[in-house]
Amino acid sequence: MKILVAIKQVPARDSLLTAAASGKWIDESNLEYEINEPDAYALEEALQLKEVHGGEVVALCAGPDRASATIREALAKGADRAIHIAVDDIVEWDTLATAKLLAAAVKTEAPDLVLTGLQSDDVGAGQAGVVMAELLGLPHATIIMQVDIEGGMLRVKRELEDGWFQHVGMPLPAVLTIQSGIKKLRYATLMGIKKAKTKEVKSLTPGDLGVSRIASYELVGVTLPQKSKQTQMLKTVAELVEKLKNEVHVL
């Protein structure tokens, strides 16, 4: 079974973000990057499915040069090979255009299963998987907590709102978006890191894939959110205890 996992590189979670001088995006000059967390779970699920069903796991990532660090990490964890769609201006590609890039690369591989995280920690549109499915003509399901494969059929557990779940069946090939927490994440081993250096990373450009950047929307600008409430910022524990006692009346 061939499983393709689409992963994204995003700014590290505890980054302190500021708007760039252009006001069009964040200031990227001093940022550290990491794998988008839900995609790490998608990769983990793919690796565990391979352990049960055999086959190979191919990591797919679109991004500038820096994305190669995230691709190496996926290979170190156990992906067999990778495809890097080299795009310097990836933040300027909207959700549809990005999914077109990914889908075009998926098509060249014709995998049995495509996994990705349910959303990204940066843009957070939560669409790459669903849009890819439509572009590829494949069935899909989102926010998946469990994946079972039997006799060429998928049976997945979808998370619904408010503590509800639902099992959904569908034929392979298919696209699934994976919820964080589906399995425990593994760390890359020293051996894995060593092996990763010899694994194949195929580099493609949007031109190779025949995809150009056509926008459905334009980003006007980014700003820090405005406070909806008047927050009293307190300096000391004593002040906070005083508020809890005299204003909130819980002490």
Partner: peptide, 15 residues
Amino acid sequence: QLFQGKMNAEIQPLG
């Protein structure tokens, strides 16, 4: 919102 609510983005839909 972007970045889990740390930033807001204003967008103009086209088409």
